[in-house]
Design a binder for these strands. Structure first.
Length: 220
DNA sequence: CGCCAGGCCGTGT
DNA sequence: ACACGGCATGGC
């Protein structure tokens, strides 16, 4: 009993986080100028490269439509054309309009008030909006509403599988994996505010690592 | 040229 | 509950 009892080894997840942080540095996500832009980005990046998302965001900005009123007042067919570069533009255009309609119906377009709802209620409202699934909802919860919710994406699954941290990471359902990660990290980061910060950086770092891994494989 | 990107949803078993 | 196919553009 004379070794390491007072200072346990860093658990695998925390060790991975530290390693990614050392390798890539702080990411300071989300790359958006406002909560609403963040939400639009979350919709547009569904199964889509960020480069293509930026092309659509540029279109919205150029026509002064990257706002609640802008999305609401633009005819669907016109919005679709602006979103075209981001792919799946019909689903994304109607999804964004549905989100804005929900805001208007329930909160008089007051996004800050919507984002101030209790976490569980907010998550359920988000999931009820067409085009918002588990990952998009959790991205909004973490990056726009600043809640300690861990975002699970395909990069997360591949990395946790490759690192042998969760060998079934590619196949377990979303909620199981999310709750596993959250409870494991909660032990090391009991303060919710700290946890929100760590989840924020961790997800961004995982994406950075995933992109780098992909481009290095293509060159090889 | 083919593959895939920070998923979601409707349908069929 | 889970598997599968469709949705769409742009870069490598």
């Amino acid at each position: 009993m004379n070794r390491k009892t007072a200072e346990p080894e860093a658990p695998p997840l925390q060790a991975l986080y530290q390693r990614l942080l050392a390798e890539h540095g702080p990411q300071h996500w989300w790359p958006a100028e406002s909560p609403f832009e963040m939400i639009v980005g979350a919709y547009l990046t569904q199964n889509t490269s960020w480069r293509n998302v930026e092309l659509a965001l540029i279109n919205l900005r150029a026509s002064n439509k990257l706002s609640i009123a802008g999305i609401r007042d633009t005819p669907l067919s016109e919005l679709e054309q602006l979103l075209r570069p981001s792919g799946f533009f019909r689903q994304k255009a109607s999804g964004l309009k549905a989100f804005v309609s929900m805001l208007e119906a329930e909160h008089a377009t007051d996004l800050a008030m919507f984002l101030a709802l209790p976490t569980d209620a907010l998550r359920n409202r988000l999931l009820a909006v067409p085009g918002v699934g588990l990952e998009t909802a959790d991205s909004i919860l973490l990056y726009a509403a600043r809640r300690p919710i861990f975002v699970v994406d395909l990069y997360t699954r591949r990395l946790l599988q490759a690192e042998s941290i969760y060998p079934d990471a590619l196949t377990v359902d979303y909620e199981t994996l999310r709750l596993r990660i959250e409870s494991a990290l909660s032990l090391f980061y009991p303060d919710p505010a700290v946890r929100t910060y760590v989840f924020n950086e961790f997800h961004a770092l995982i994406v950075a690592e995933g992109k780098q891994f992909r481009s290095s494989r293509i060159r090889a």
